[in-house]
Simulated scan of single mutants.
Amino acid sequence: MSVIQRVVKPTTRKGKKVLLSREPQVIEGPKRMLFLQGRRASEKVRKVLSDLYDIKKPDARKLSKKNDITIFENIVPMEQLCRKNETPLFLFGSHNKKRPDNVVFGRMFDYSLLDMIELGIETYNGFNEFSNRKISLGTKPCLIFSGPEWESSEELKHLKSIFIDMFHREHVENVRLQGLEHAISFTAANGKVLLRSYKILLKKSGCRTPRIELDEIGPRIDFTIRRSKLPSEDLMKQACRKPKELKKTVKKNISVDGLGTKHGRIHIGKQNIDKLQTRKMKGLKKTTEERALDKTRKRKSMDSEDHEIRKKIKAN
């Protein structure tokens, strides 16, 4: 059954600005994420949702009410909630006898399901079980992916991409060493995904480069991979399409040498140098003596031409 969507046209300047902000941008900002739970959720699932929500804040929205959604059977209610809250990412927690302590990571493309992966929580240690100092709100984390399975398994490839979208914040060109405060490690081994969170401490080392220590701050979660729903190649290609403004165009006749110096080649037609206007300043005009010399040179050249012509006439 197809749903006909109503086309909203702005009537005010503020409404037009809001609709323009919802359109695709050349450089996307941090993606917002929706945290919600199903009909039943265990205490472990609720704590996992709460801890991941604290890491994702302020680019997150958490729903406190329970939602009667069976996400793998009917995805339409989730798409409607993501559209309503303007969140292209979602984390759905549930618990039942067949799949206990269950969470689903997923993302949308144009508010239609792109991909989602279901994980089971085996072990969990939350923020409260670590007594050390936590990180500040909105810190951009350093993501570390360990294990060859991240590149060999299609499910883990998509899960890695979801984690990157989830913890990605503002786009930056350079990174300051003192700005690296938080590191999140993801290890894939034997069908499990191990999540660890560390606070980066810069210690004195006696030289310019500091000594780095990692202090675990939580949460510590061990996931097992369960079900997944992956997109088709055409849909994934459409979702990963880059805008024209970001594509690098090759400039002709420009090269860079080994030292980084840029060289350019210019092609121009033939020019008559004798007719170029070079004297425009009043102080660079010809003097009377230079004019007299030019006149005498012209007379001599004309006389020599006349003399050669006369010779040819006599010879004939």
Rank of each mutant, 00 (worst) to 15 (best):
142 C>H: 04
175 V>F: 09
184 I>L: 06
164 I>Y: 03
262 K>V: 15
194 L>C: 12
94 S>F: 11
271 Q>C: 06
248 K>D: 15
47 K>Q: 08
64 S>F: 15
8 V>C: 04
301 S>H: 14
17 K>A: 09
249 T>L: 07
268 I>S: 12
40 R>Q: 12
164 I>P: 00
219 P>C: 07
289 E>C: 01
241 R>I: 14
46 R>Q: 02
99 R>L: 12
36 L>D: 05
63 L>H: 07
283 G>C: 09
129 E>L: 13
28 E>F: 05
150 W>K: 01
306 D>W: 12
58 P>I: 11
234 D>M: 07
53 Y>W: 09
237 K>Q: 07
83 R>D: 11
214 L>P: 01
207 C>H: 11
145 F>L: 02
18 V>E: 05
60 A>E: 04
94 S>N: 07
289 E>P: 03
170 E>I: 07
293 L>D: 08
240 C>W: 11
296 T>K: 07
115 D>I: 10
197 S>P: 04
140 K>L: 04
287 T>G: 02
189 A>V: 15
46 R>M: 08
181 E>Q: 11
298 K>N: 11
140 K>C: 14
2 S>P: 10
174 N>K: 15
202 L>D: 05
73 E>L: 02
230 L>Q: 01
152 S>A: 07
12 T>F: 11
299 R>E: 15
246 L>S: 09
79 E>F: 13
42 S>A: 01
269 G>A: 08
88 P>E: 03
38 G>N: 00
223 F>K: 00
103 V>P: 00
222 D>E: 14
64 S>L: 11
286 K>M: 07
138 G>Q: 07
306 D>F: 09
267 H>G: 10
9 K>S: 05
235 L>Q: 11
283 G>Y: 08
161 S>I: 14
259 L>V: 12
13 R>Q: 06
232 S>Q: 13
288 T>R: 14
306 D>L: 05
160 K>P: 02
210 P>S: 01
38 G>P: 07
250 V>P: 04
192 K>G: 00
172 V>D: 00
170 E>C: 08
240 C>Y: 15
188 A>F: 14
90 F>W: 03
286 K>T: 06
180 L>M: 09
161 S>W: 01
65 K>P: 04
7 V>H: 06
256 V>A: 00
85 N>L: 03
248 K>Q: 15
153 S>Q: 04
200 I>P: 01
293 L>Q: 11
94 S>E: 10
86 E>S: 02
173 E>C: 04
167 F>T: 06
288 T>P: 05
194 L>M: 05
17 K>E: 04
15 G>W: 02
124 Y>W: 14
212 I>R: 00
122 E>L: 13
123 T>C: 04
186 F>S: 00
139 T>K: 00
187 T>D: 08
100 P>I: 05
303 D>Q: 09
24 P>F: 13
265 R>L: 12
223 F>M: 00
